[in-house]
Write a protein that binds this DNA or RNA. Structure first.
Lengths: 345, 345
DNA sequence: GTGAAAGCGCTAACAT
DNA sequence: ATGTTAGCGCTTTCAC
């Protein structure tokens, strides 16, 4: 069923039917009602391809996910983010176009999306410390929103980010207040902007209390269970081992927990752990994971906010860039009670 | 730069330019060369929207991911699958359209995709034991490929699946051959088709050896670390605890490992574990996870195969449905040596 | 308030 | 081998 057929049934012009369906004011209420009823009855849906061509818009948002040939890892937080963004899109009649590209082909992918005019806007994932993609997108003139930020904010662009620095500073202070002096930081790769900010927050908290950051207690690596286990184990075997861990992802924290338990210590009694858990809904589901969550702003939520911001920008072009910093909240896990360092600290 | 402008520069008709670019045979080699060079120089990309309308195709494949309001879980294997499929799409000039919908809205989402003609085909994810979606898609007449299968194969459709039944039967036999009698199965939710088949394979192997399946050693639940830990722990505390675990996902297996280690036993010495690991590239990356992998056909690979099959079906309509059963391979993890039950078994 | 007609940027018959 | 022309199914002037 297309517009022509529908208007034939109604004995109206395509124009009127189109206007009625798109809520143009000049159509009489009676006609509009009749048209909408007929559209519903005939299960009419405007052909996207035709609509796109006529309007010059595609009602689609592009997401470019880059994988590296080396490790083939797809960032798992991505699934949650997508779920949040997707919800907003479908509520607003937008589609989501996903492009999975090798990191080396990334620039080409962006250029192609822009030239083919297949999307009205783009969400940028996983910004690096000094990300050239944003410069390119500005140049291409395509609306975009970044999930995260990039180091030197010379280019002015729209972003949604959590306050990683503050969050880690507060989490560190929380542990310091409990009496910990030797706190380990298990962090993501420093080339990612977020990991860089997290370390800054961690170090700032230590410096404020006159504590020197100890390099042997700081890890910057992929956020996997394996890395969590190895790093923590190594630290715990050391004579001067940490009494608390600040961990950058739940997956890593699962590894840390295993190392702690394997060393005969007990989490929440001998060792404290604070996790920044804006990630991985399917892991969060475990209710007795002894963690102390540093945030409630989930990635899913961030996905929603990014999507809403982008749609807003597309609807009202020419505005100054929008920025949104999501604050986190320090909440203590239900099942393990308050964290206290043991008497030996 | 559009076709009109490009052909003006070349002093050729739009038709000729279009034909040259699309490799139609009737264009002279000289012209084709000239046209392609000009297209490259001017960074010309055909407008997708126009091309779609003209050809009646959208060069896009739809993926519908359903989440349930209840647990908000996005199946993590999805990210890997998408990566594999996406690779194939971009190689073939296709886009990937992602729709995230509440499970209750799923039918509407499929109908909409079909009516709006926004995709040329659909990949169905996570088929349930008796999945009505396939009936709907057949009815809508849109090409589709299922990742997995559904219980009663009355409807004839195309699918790509791994041989879950055989894989679990062989894994169980492997453990039986090592002398194990009490083998625990930590499985996914039975409402999912794959979990159902896996249990069948497990039970078949036991029955063949005259062993009665023990309900207290069989778990069917969400595949999370938490579930793995709780289930394994409960079993290990029991007087009559298992000597081996057969686990349906790496994430769950991480929980099982923690439970085993927490009970003072050692994996690969006191307890054996076989994992079906077609999942989660970011977990697989850990090199010293003591697992015995039951397969090499990763989800990423399945994504590629599904995508290729669907593109093939779209290119050659009217063929009978295609089916592909991926066999698995039993490989033993590098770092832990051969699995042997301890002497007490 | 409604309709006729042009056009979005391509592709594909149908000439030549 | 190249060009002319007519759509694809909508939206959007412009006219009534």
């Amino acid at each position: 069923m297309n517009l022509k057929e529908l208007s034939a049934i109604l004995k109206l012009s395509q124009t009127t039917v189109s206007r009625a369906l798109n809520n143009y004011p000049e159509v009489s209420e009676a006609t509009r009602y009749r048209v909408k009823a007929a559209a519903l009855a005939n299960n009419y849906r405007p052909n996207t391809r035709a609509k796109n061509l006529a309007t010059g818009r595609s009602f689609a948002i592009g997401h470019i996910i880059s994988t590296s040939k080396r490790n083939e890892i797809v960032n798992p937080i991505f699934a949650d983010f997508i779920a949040g963004a997707g919800e907003v899109y479908s509520r607003n009649g937008y589609d989501m176009l996903l492009s999975v590209v090798q990191d080396v082909d990334e620039e080409r992918a962006y250029r192609e999306m822009a030239a083919k005019a297949s999307v009205d806007g783009i969400i940028v994932h996983g910004p690096r410390a000094n990300d050239q993609r944003l410069v390119l997108l500005k140049e291409l003139g395509i609306p975009f929103v970044v999930h995260g930020r990039t180091g030197n904010d010379e280019t002015d662009y729209s972003w949604v980010d959590i306050n990683n620095r503050r969050s880690f500073q507060r989490a560190t202070e929380f542990l310091l207040d409990l009496g910990h002096h030797r706190i380990a930081l298990i962090n993501g790769l420093e080339e990612m902007d977020f990991a860089h900010r997290r370390r800054e927050g961690f170090e700032a908290a230590l410096i404020n209390r006159g504590i020197q950051a100890d390099d042997t207690l700081m890890v910057s690596d992929e956020m996997s269970e394996d890395v969590g286990y190895r790093s923590a184990r190594k630290m715990l075997e050391n004579g001067n081992s940490p009494t608390a861990f600040l961990v950058s992802s739940i997956l890593t924290a699962i590894g840390v927990r295993r190392a702690v338990e394997g060393s005969g210590r007990q989490l929440g009694r001998d060792i404290s752990m604070v996790i920044h858990d804006d990630e991985l809904s399917y892991l969060r589901n475990g209710r007795d994971i002894p963690i102390f969550s540093a945030t409630r702003s989930s990635v899913r939520n961030a996905g929603q906010i990014c999507a809403e911001m982008l749609l807003e920008i597309i609807a009202n072009p020419g505005q100054p860039p929008q920025k949104k910093l999501l604050e986190t909240e320090l909440t203590v896990g239900e099942s393990t009670g308050p964290v206290r360092p043991n008497s030996s600290i």
